[in-house]
Design a protein around this nucleic acid. Sequence first.
RNA 1: UGUCUGGUGCAUUCG
Length: 418
Amino acid sequence: SLNIMVNALCKDGKLHEVDGFLVDMEKKGILPDNVTYNTLINERCRNLELDKGFELLDLMKQKGWKPDLVAYNSILNGFCKTEEISKAEKLFDEMLELGLAPNTSTFNILMGIYCKIGDSDKVTKVLEEILQHGLVPDMVSFSNLINFFAKRGDMNRVLIYFKEMKKVGLAPDIVIYTMVIRGFCNVGAISKAIKMREEMVMRGIPPDTVTYNTILGGFCRRRMLTDARQLFDEMMERGVSPDFCSFTTLIHGYCKGGHVDEALNLFDKMLQLYLKPDIVTYNTLIDGLCREGDLTKASDLWEHMSARGISPNRITYSILINSYCDKGQIEEALGFRDEMVQNGILVNIVICNSLVKGYCRSGNTKKAQEFLENMQKDNVIPDSITYNTIIHQYVKDERISEALDLVKKMELKGVEPD
RNA sequence: UGUCUGGUGCAUUCG
């Protein structure tokens, strides 16, 4: 019951109240046990306070408790969250030396790290290790695997794991199905995505709003706006209400398809339904309007947004900056950048790349190249897009030798030309 | 009583 209380306090984010509570309990003669310590260690690690976690680990040893697998898993998870991979790997080896047999959770934590850094070989290896240790991958393992490979469009792998999980008696849930659908959409296999939706319905898992939004996004990316609209209407009929994401997705589709008018209609409809547009909705529309050259409406929306208490974020600014850069109006773009920085938002690589383009378009490749050199001072490292932008401009201007020089330069800097 | 993952929408070059 002490542990239940401690656990409840941790889940409520009231870690600071735990110490007092433990003191009170100690007066009554109730002492923490290893589960108590594990709970606290885990909470500290989740809050990225690994040093505190280790302190607790020492404390529990002092009190005569032997840290068990759960304690180590918590700390391992802490290293995972802070992406201290070598420390995590070291700790894992230590666990083995201590004779602590890892469980599936241990491997899931490791797999999580490799997913995060995008190391697909290691991800696969962890799965093999699970099997080598005589363990069984669980729902979390499969979630990780399917999510990871679906995002990268490796649908062969996704289907292998999807089948495998069924084989070991795990029923894919709505999230798994949606991840698979998203993967198919990403590789443009819309019909397979739709088949998946049918399968989930057959298995008694009706698609929810997120599932629909995923398919909607797939249609929109492939410019299948009629299908998208049909699906959107179908949602209503089936009682799965479109949410603000559904609207934004469709608005995005219409904007990219050059139907900003229809996008604006949807925006009105959204307001009528009392669905609150968020910053993404506004950004999407502002981008669409800028591309149309309708700066009046774009700035109307900016006002509308501000009036509703939503502040422009880095992407909002990048949209405006990019719009001016496209037109070669570098001074206006720089003005917005300055305003942004004054508002405490830092430049990033996307914005710098836009500005490089702005210099190129205003006929000043020299300035563009200067800017490229200087952006490192802002802790922004030029990437292949930065170089490509200028190279393309040189090619367009038939200044081939300068283009080749820059290719050499990017190779020298360790940026891969494509 | 304690440990692990999760699904949808916005900006930069070329595509």
